[in-house]
Amino acid sequence: MAEEFTPKIIGFTCNWCTYAAADLAGTSRMQYPPNLRLVRVMCSGRVSPEFVLKAFQLGADGVFIGGCHLGDCHYIHGNFKAITRYYLLKKMLQQFGIEPERVRFNFISAAEGEAFTQAVKDFTEQLKRLGPLRPSGGEGSGEA
């Protein structure tokens, strides 16, 4: 009866780097698990911590954020803001019982389709091991 658990992942990727890397993975026909759904933003610095909370509130098992490598941000220092918010948010989420591994930040440039594919595969495996965020019947899943 236990179906294999497919983690739901919501991702936020910056237009210039990681979103482009995801596109490159596509043009190169690299394959990865279909449970990741991406929201395109201009810069990883656009990602409000509330987006991450919302995703978890609505049933995501993991949240992925992708931005340019430090020093390469199209908007100069957006990714520095993003990575600082990310570490602080991870620390806080632990207090809510959300394992820090459930939020993942990767610096992936537009040329790194392979790195993007691997990140999705690794994250999926990691979440499979952690299990669902809310065991079935838990409060809060699907609430808007």
Partner: peptide, 19 residues
């Protein structure tokens, strides 16, 4: 984006790609 980030990367899982 249902090509680069969907049909082209989930070629072995058409039902899931459609979802």
């Amino acid at each position: 984006n249902i090509r680069e980030q969907c049909s082209w990367v989930h070629m072995g899982e058409p039902e899931k790609a459609t979802e």
